[in-house]
Simulated scan of single mutants.
Amino acid sequence: MRLALLLGGPLLITEGLRERLKAFRLWAADSGARHALELGLPLELWLGDMDSSPPWLQEALPAPRVLLPPEKDLTDGEALMRRALEAGPEEVLLLGATGGRLDHTLAHLELAFLLAERGIRVELSDGLTRTFPLLPGEHAFSLEAGAPFSLLPFPEATLGVEGARWDLPPTPLKATTRALENRALGPIRLWVERGRALLHLFP
C-alpha cells in the first residue's frame, strides 16, 4: 500500500504530482485536506480536530472523517502518521510537511525517521523539492547529470558521497554546510556510517 499524507504546509500542485498520486491512497490531517480539493483527487480519510479547516472547506470536501479532540498532546499531523504506521504501508509520501512553520517542519522530519525505522520508504515534498530521511547504510539514487542535491547530518553523522561533482569520503559531520549544494554526475551513492542524514533534492 502507498499512502500520501496531506499536511498543512505549502504544496505546489503540478500535473506531474497529480499523475504520481494516482498510485497512492490520500489521507489528510485537518487543513491539509485543502490540497486534495486543489488536486481534484478523492480523499480516503480526513483526520483532525478541524480547528484550521474553515466551514467552506468542510462543506466543499466530502470525505470520511475522524474527529479528534482539540485538547491533545500531539498534532493532527502526528496523529495521522501514527495511524499510517498502524496501516502498514510500504511507502509514505508526506506532502505539505515542510515549509511554513519551522516547528512543524522539524517535527515532521523527526516523524519521517520514525516511519523509516519501521522499514517504510519515506519522502517529504512541497511539490517542488524532495527530501529523504537516511538511516545507517548505503543508499543509491538515480539522479540525472547536473541535478543539484544537499546532504545534511541530522543532527550529526558520518557521511560519504560517490558519483558527485564533489565526492566525499566517509567524514564525521555536525553543524556544517560542507555537504550542501552538490551536483550529481549521474546516479549517486551515499553512505551513512553513523547517525542519521537527510538527502534534499531541489531545482
Rank of each mutant, 00 (worst) to 15 (best):
R101I: 07
R82H: 10
G119N: 15
P64G: 11
R83D: 00
L95T: 01
M81R: 02
F113E: 01
P54Y: 12
A107L: 05
P70W: 02
P54M: 12
E86L: 03
L94K: 13
P89F: 06
E86Q: 09
S52I: 14
F113N: 13
L124E: 09
G100A: 10
V92Y: 03
L109G: 05
D49M: 12
G48K: 13
G119A: 09
R82P: 04
D103C: 01
L95Y: 09
D49W: 13
L124C: 11
P42F: 04
P54I: 15
V92L: 10
T105L: 14
P69F: 04
D103S: 02
G40E: 10
G48H: 13
E90I: 07
P55R: 14
G119Y: 05
L68H: 14
G96H: 02
P69C: 05
A97W: 03
L45A: 12
P89S: 08
L106C: 07
R121M: 08
S53P: 07
L37R: 15
L109R: 12
A116I: 09
L85T: 02
L61G: 00
A87L: 06
P62N: 10
D126T: 08
K72P: 04
P42G: 15
G88Y: 08
M50C: 07
S53M: 15
L43M: 12
L39E: 15
M50R: 14
T98H: 00
A97C: 05
E90N: 06
L111T: 08
L74G: 06
P62C: 01
A63F: 11
E90W: 00
L47M: 14
